[in-house]
Each structure stands twice: as structure tokens, then as C-alpha cells.
Nucleic acid binder design. Structure first.
Length: 423
RNA sequence: GGAGAGGUGUCUGAGUGGUCGAAAGAGCACGCCUGGAAAGUGUGUAUACGCCAAAAGUGUAUCGAGGGUUCGAAUCCCUCCCUCUCCGCCA
């Protein structure tokens, strides 16, 4: 959520930045400013009437104690009008605040100055490409056929017990999942992240805190009996660990990592590009999250991006880094780098990680502050990144590493899988 | 699921209608003391919003949340949420 005071003081800049994100309702900016004016004047009125009423109450108390009941009653006679006015102004203030809030949450985060303008994925900027694109023989198989051939993943069984998009991993397929999770967590720990293991369902306040609600309500599974949402990413429970928290300056940066399954409804996305592991309703992911001082968040973003790239390099996967254009970025992000690996059999790039700086956008919803050098509270910056999401990594690994004698496991994973080949 | 207890500041914990944003203690910060430390001692120590160019200052709100009674609510009433204990069930 953007801060009203910032919008008020930087109207032109806000409009300009929103345009980079192709924001369709710039009128909201002026509406927010107007509502805020109204909010402030209403509060000023309310405060002054309340102050009068408070001082009258105090007088009454003093008089009663002094035994001057008549004088107290005389003041009491005048309080009716104030009460009415306080109630009316209070109701008005609540209504204005609600309306302001409703408009405010519709404003997306402002993109960083390095974010290219654009509205489609084609307009994302390729920052770098790394690793050799493997040449596969003509009879190379896509991962869903490899998964069937080597009995690694059973999509049909998943359909039977749950539904499409809920795969069943078997044998070496299951072990590969476990190996990747452990590998990613160990790498994160080496990079200084403290591991947490989290609830897989969150309440509404948490969904709001990180920006899933109300914007992306339809993307989450909702457990109505208990008013809980299945997490679409570990970002939600991890970042919400710090909701309503004021950190000491020396507690920054906060670095956490965690593995969780992720649940996404992915409503409306069907077709060839969702085959196999390309898009699932449930998948596994290791997430890294940082809460940092605003002065450092872009350096940290770069470091997180490099951490993710390091994982891909260790796994020997060719990848590229995209700086997302304004229109392709999420509602909440100020800057996002997507990492994509080259799927040799599908001949396309697959997104495996997204590293974002949210600046204060989540922090303002979360009320996540720290005490700055002047001793005042200040909103922190939050960042997160997938490190990494498993399914497309598995897809790419299977496809790119397929040989005549089977699928070769990358060396760094062998200590975790305890097998070198899937054959 | 049944029965009971309770939610106060960083923590412990007082407070059953007015001077309570809230005693006291602990913790923390700064100072004094000390060769240094401990002890001792002094001061300070919530958040948000408004007014003000800003600081200073000042106003308002906040004692789980929301509503009500009252001139006045941490304190009384109602609703909801949460936590704990016992019983039952159970990985």
C-alpha cells in the first residue's frame, strides 16, 4: 500500500510511475488526495470537539468531588450537543477513512526507475543469458513423457485422488523432489538465511499483509469452514512473521528461508503450456525473504538475484534473467527479476524464480517498521525470491539431461539423491 | 466436542466509574559513581493520526476487537475473536 503522505507530496511523480505500470485508473490518485483532505479536516474538527467534551467532563468530576452538584449539573446540561456532534463527526471520519482505504488498496506499487515501460511479457528486458543451450537429438522427449518412461511422476493418479494439477511423485521422482528441497535449503543457509517451517494455511490479515488480498483472492484456495487460505507461496507466512513488528536497527537485515508446498488455483489457465509440470495447483518451493533498511534494498535485491543464479549455475541449467516491464510486474512489486531456464525439449523458457523488491508496499500493510538512527519508527523494505520453485526445475533437468542411457543427475545433487542416474 | 479461567505497555503485574497512557518491579538507553565491572544512584523509555513550514509544543484515539450505558469507561452491559486449564477424542 502506498502512503498517502507520499502521494500527497509527489502527485506528479506518482502519476508518472503508475503510467509505467500501465495503471488504468489514474483518477484514483486525485480521489485519494481529496479523501485525505477530507479525512484530515474531519479529524481536526472531531479532535477539537472531543477536547471540549473532555475538559467539561473533567470539570464535572472536579465539581462533584467538591460537592458542587448544582454547578456540575449545569455543565451536564450542555453536553448533549457535543455528544451528538462527536458521534456524527466520528461516523463521518470512519466513513471517509474506509473510502480512502478502499481506493488506496487499488493503487499498485510504484515501479523503480529502472523498470522498462511495457505491457506484455515480450517487452520484458533480458538482462543476461548464461549457460550453453543444449542440443538434443531429434527423438528427445518432453518431461511428461520422460516422467512416464522412468516412472517418476504419475499425473493420472493425482487426477484420481485429487484432480488435475496435483501430481504424484514416485520412486526416484519423489527422491529427486526431496533432494532438491534439501539442496536449496542448505544453499540458503550457507547464504545466511535462517530456516523456518510454517503453517500452510493463513488468515485473512496475513493475506492482506503481503498483498494477495483483496487483489488476488481468486488465486488462493479458501477453507471456508475456518476462514483460512492455503498459501500460494511461503512469502505469505514468512513475511507475515513480521506483521505489527517494530525491529531494532541492529536486527536488520532479517533473512529467512523456508520450504513449503504452494497452492494455486490458476483459474482459467489451461492448454498446451500447462502440460506436465509446467503449471500445477500444488508444487514445492523454497523461498528466501529479507526485511532490510530502505537504503540497502536494491543492493540486497541484486544479491538475492545472484543467489538464485548461483543455484541454476550449480545445477548446470542454462538460464536468463529478465527485468520485468511495468505491465508484467505484480501489483505489489517495485522491481522484479524473473529467472527462466531453457527447456530443451519444449524449446521454450520456463520461469523458475521471481525476485522482487516491494520497498515499503508490503511493510505499510504489515505495519513492519524499524527504529531509525533518529529513534523514530520507519517502514522497512521487504524482498523475496523463489530459490527455487521445483516443478520447472525438474522439467528442465529431465529434458536437458536426457541421454541414451538415462537422465544424468547434476553432481551437486548426487549427495542428496544418492543416485547418479535415472534409468 | 463438554466444563471452567483469562486477555493491561518490551516483560511480570496493579488497577471494579473521574486527577489512568495507565502504579510498582524487571528490562532497555543515557548519565553519575568505579582503575574496570557489579552493586548503588539519577533521568528517560508505547503507537497512530491531526494542528504547526519544521522542531518544540499541543490535541485526539488506543488497556484483545466491535457496539452500548454514562457528563465521564481499562473498570459496568452486549456481541465476537483469541489464549490457557481440566475432561473427551486423537497423529
Amino acid at each position: 500500500m502506498l502512503q498517502v503522505s507520499y502521494i500527497r507530496d509527489n502527485r506528479e511523480q506518482v502519476l508518472e510511475r503508475l503510467a509505467v505500470k500501465n495503471f488504468k485508473q489514474p483518477i484514483l490518485v486525485d480521489e485519494v488526495i481529496q479523501l485525505d483532505d477530507k479525512r484530515r479536516s474531519t479529524q481536526t474538527q472531531l479532535d477539537s470537539v472531543s477536547a471540549q467534551a473532555n475538559s467539561a467532563s473533567k470539570q464535572i468530576g472536579d465539581l462533584m468531588r467538591a460537592g458542587k452538584k448544582d454547578e456540575a449539573d449545569a455543565i451536564k446540561a450542555n453536553t448533549g450537543a457535543w455528544k451528538e456532534e462527536i458521534k456524527q463527526l466520528g461516523d463521518l471520519l470512519t466513513a471517509v477513512e474506509e473510502e480512502l482505504q478502499q481506493k488506496l488498496v487499488l493503487l499498485p506499487n510504484l515501479p523503480h526507475s529502472s523498470v522498462p515501460k511495457g505491457s506484455t511479457p515480450e517487452e520484458n528486458e533480458v538482462v543476461l543469458t548464461n549457460g550453453a543451450i543444449p542440443e538434443l537429438p531429434a527423438n528427445a522427449l518432453p518431461h511428461w513423457e520422460l516422467a512416464a518412461k522412468y516412472n517418476l511422476i504419475d499425473f493420472e493418479l493425482g487426477v484420481k485422488i485429487t484432480g488435475a494439477g496435483f501430481p504424484v511423485y514416485k520412486g526416484k521422482g519423489a527422491k529427486l523432489q526431496r533432494a532438491l528441497i534439501s539442496f536449496f535449503l542448505d544453499e540458503a543457509e550457507k547464504a545466511g538465511y535462517d530456516e523456518v517451517m510454517l503453517p500452510l494455511m493463513v488468515n485473512e490479515a496475513s493475506g492482506f499483509g503481503t498483498g494477495q488480498l483483496p487483489d488476488k483472492e481468486g488465486q488462493m484456495y479458501f477453507v471456508g469452514n475456518d476462514n483460512l487460505y492455503l498459501i500460494p507461496t511461503a512469502e505469505v507466512p514468512i513475511t507475515n512473521l513480521y506483521r505489527d513488528v517494530i525491529l531494532k536497527a541492529d536486527e536488520l537485515p532479517v533473512k529467512n528461508c523456508g520450504y513449503t508446498p504452494c497452492f494455486r488455483r490458476e483459474a482459467g489457465s489451461y492448454g498446451a503450456h500447462v502440460r506436465g509440470l509446467n503449471r500445477l495447483h500444488q508444487f514445492d518451493k523454497v523461498e528466501i525473504v529479507q526485511v532490510v533498511h530502505p537504503d540497502h534494498s536494491y543492493d540486497v535485491h541484486e544479491k538475492m538475484s545472484l543467489h538464485v543464479q548461483g543455484l541454476l549455475q550449480k545445477l548446470g541449467l542454462p538460464y536468463r534473467v529478465l527485468r520485468l516491464c511495468g505491465g508484467d510486474m505484480s501489483f505489489t512489486a517495485a522491481l522484479t527479476h524473473d529467472m527462466e531456464t531453457w527447456s530443451a525439449a519444449q524449446q521454450r523458457w520456463l520461469e523458475v524464480s521471481s525476485v522482487s523488491n516491494f520497498e515499503t508496499f508490503q511493510a505499510s500493510r504489515l505495519k513492519l517498521r524499524f527504529r531509525n538512527a533518529e529513534g523514530k519508527t520507519q517502514l522497512a523494505h521487504t524482498l523475496n525470491g523463489s530459490a527455487l520453485a521445483l516443478p520447472r526445475i525438474v522439467a528442465t533437468l529431465l529434458e536437458n539431461n536426457q541421454t541414451e542411457k538415462g537422465i544424468k543427475i547434476p553432481e551437486v545433487l548426487v549427495p542428496y539423491t544418492r543416485f547418479e542416474w535415472i534409468d
